[in-house]
Simulated assay, not measured.
Amino acid sequence: MSAAPAGLAAEEEPDYRFTLANERTFLAWIRTALALVAGGVAVGQVSATGDTGRVLVVLLAITCLVTALVLAFGAPAHWRRSQAAIRRGLPLPGTRLIAVLVLAVVVLAAAGTALLLVT
């Protein structure tokens, strides 16, 4: 164990189970991002009738793909912050990824419902 800079806790090798749990959480975020990419591509292939239907299809696809991008970029950063906290014995950091995902699901559900009603 080395001396930590002023104001920071020293890093220690954590119990491997905590590291593996952090890794599983990271992989869950990446799986969710991959599913959103697949969903966005699939929805983008839907042929909706009328201008309103096509706009909703594009909205669904773009929402899926943008959410996937946010999760894919945010997951590694959250993993690194969590790993640093685990090694220093600090509380785990929060994440905005959950709020982003919830908001995206609400938008996707609303647009999907509207699409079904319009077509």
Results as ranks from 00 to 15, higher is better:
98 I>W: 04
7 G>T: 05
32 T>N: 03
68 A>H: 06
97 L>Q: 03
87 R>Q: 12
47 S>H: 06
33 A>G: 01
58 V>Y: 09
49 T>G: 11
44 G>W: 05
61 A>S: 14
56 L>P: 04
80 R>L: 15
63 T>N: 11
7 G>R: 07
26 F>L: 15
86 I>D: 07
27 L>V: 07
82 S>A: 15
14 P>D: 10
95 T>N: 09
75 A>L: 03
47 S>R: 14
9 A>C: 11
27 L>K: 15
58 V>P: 02
64 C>K: 00
74 G>S: 05
41 V>P: 02
67 T>F: 00
64 C>L: 06
43 V>N: 04
81 R>K: 14
65 L>D: 02
51 D>N: 12
90 L>R: 08
87 R>I: 04
46 V>K: 07
86 I>R: 08
35 A>S: 14
88 R>P: 10
95 T>S: 13
25 T>L: 15
43 V>C: 10
51 D>V: 13
71 L>G: 05
39 G>K: 03
63 T>F: 05
50 G>W: 01
86 I>T: 09
29 W>Y: 12
7 G>L: 10
98 I>A: 14
90 L>C: 09
27 L>C: 07
74 G>K: 06
88 R>A: 09
24 R>N: 00
73 F>W: 03
41 V>N: 03
62 I>K: 13
48 A>D: 00
9 A>L: 12
98 I>F: 10
24 R>W: 11
72 A>E: 02
43 V>Q: 15
82 S>K: 13
39 G>V: 08
50 G>D: 03
52 T>P: 00
71 L>Y: 00
99 A>F: 04
71 L>H: 01
72 A>S: 07
22 N>R: 14
49 T>I: 12
53 G>H: 01
18 F>N: 09
63 T>D: 14
39 G>P: 03
60 L>K: 01
47 S>V: 08
30 I>K: 11
42 A>H: 05
78 H>V: 13
79 W>M: 14
91 P>H: 05
43 V>T: 14
68 A>M: 02
67 T>Y: 00
73 F>G: 05
89 G>N: 03
94 G>I: 14
29 W>P: 08
17 R>Y: 04
8 L>M: 09
96 R>N: 08
88 R>T: 11
20 L>Y: 05
49 T>Y: 04
56 L>K: 04
92 L>A: 13
84 A>V: 12
74 G>C: 09
8 L>H: 04
54 R>W: 01
15 D>F: 00
15 D>Y: 08
42 A>F: 02
67 T>H: 01
76 P>C: 05
34 L>N: 15
9 A>S: 11
87 R>H: 04
83 Q>R: 15
98 I>M: 14
71 L>S: 01
77 A>T: 13
87 R>L: 09
71 L>K: 02
36 L>C: 06
100 V>F: 10
63 T>L: 01
58 V>F: 07
83 Q>T: 13
11 E>M: 14
14 P>C: 01
89 G>D: 11
50 G>H: 04
62 I>H: 12
69 L>T: 11
100 V>H: 03
98 I>S: 11
48 A>L: 03
59 L>G: 07
39 G>F: 06
61 A>H: 01
40 G>R: 08
38 A>I: 03
17 R>M: 10
56 L>Y: 07
72 A>H: 04
29 W>A: 09
65 L>M: 14
77 A>R: 13
59 L>S: 12
88 R>Y: 06
